[in-house]
């Protein structure tokens, strides 16, 4: 119990300290763009009502999930193909380097021409931005399958789909998850950016609306909500990762114990 409390103290100590700092630094501020934290926090419940959560936060989260899911499936699938065949890799590598160098936000006007200004556009923008780290990490992970494991699989007749499922993807999963983690933060950024262009709801849209209406404390609460959303997503991600990669963390820990 005391250990749990101690851990909890470690987790919340720094955030509380920073909030305190913010509180003190902004307490007697009269600058309209830098309102006291007290004002922001009292505005918070008025702005983020359940109605607003449903109308703005939920659509954002749904777009984010859809774009992220499309990127994950496409990135892992294409990455596995590229990683498995040397020839395909040689063919694709220069193109991949070019494509991933293009910042996704710059594609928004182009994608708007094809996909309109609806959800399809936003999902496409999110997916096209976060597919790269997933794809490139999958390529590396699939390439790096241990030759002894590959031979073991071959000698026991583990081929085709069974090999893909039980050997290749499992062996590449630590790298795939590294890509997924990077992609998650990119997805949040692109969600906000895509909603700042032609949109009628969503977190990015709302924050920009507050800003344009000089509702500065409301805008600040929106930024807080974004931070909280990112934090919540990363907690969920860690839970999933700990479950899927439990073996990997165990393996690493046992390798550290006996070098």
């Amino acid at each position: 119990m005391t250990r749990f409390l101690l851990r909890l103290a470690f987790v919340v100590a720094l955030p509380l300290f920073l909030l305190g700092l913010w509180w003190l630094a902004s307490d007697d501020s009269t600058n309209p763009f830098w309102p006291p934290l007290r004002t922001i926090l009292t505005t918070f419940p008025d702005v983020w009502t359940s109605e607003r959560l449903r109308a703005d936060v939920l659509p954002s989260v749904l777009r984010l999930s859809a774009g992220y899911a499309v990127a994950a499936v496409a990135g892992v699938a294409v990455g596995t193909v590229i990683g498995s065949y040397r020839r395909v890799r040689a063919l694709c590598e220069p193109v991949l380097e070019f494509l991933r160098a293009i910042p996704a936000p710059v594609l928004i006007p182009v994608i708007m021409l094809f996909a309109g200004i609806g959800d399809t556009m936003k999902i496409t923008v999110i997916a096209s931005g976060c597919v790269w780290p997933i794809l490139l990490n999958t390529v590396e992970g699939v390439r790096a399958v241990d030759p002894v494991m590959a031979e073991t699989a071959r000698s026991y007749g583990i081929t085709g789909a069974a090999r893909l499922r039980n050997v290749v993807l499992r062996s590449a999963s630590p790298q795939i998850f590294a890509g997924l983690r990077q992609a998650l933060s990119i997805a949040i950024i692109l969600m906000v950016i895509s909603e700042m262009f032609a949109a009628s709801n969503g977190l990015g849209f709302t924050i920009v609306q507050f800003q344009r209406g000089f509702a500065v404390p409301d805008m600040w609460t929106g930024i807080l909500v974004l931070g909280l959303l990112g934090f919540a997503l990363s907690v969920v991600f860690q839970l999933v990762e700990r479950r899927v990669l439990g073996w990997y963390h165990g393996l690493r820990a046992s390798a550290r114990r006996s070098p």
Partner: peptide, 22 residues
Amino acid sequence: SGPPPGMAFVFQEYGRSLFPWM
């Protein structure tokens, strides 16, 4: 001509021959 079903291999590198995720 390929690994036949009638043969089983035991490799020297046991740590890399067993699948650590299983």
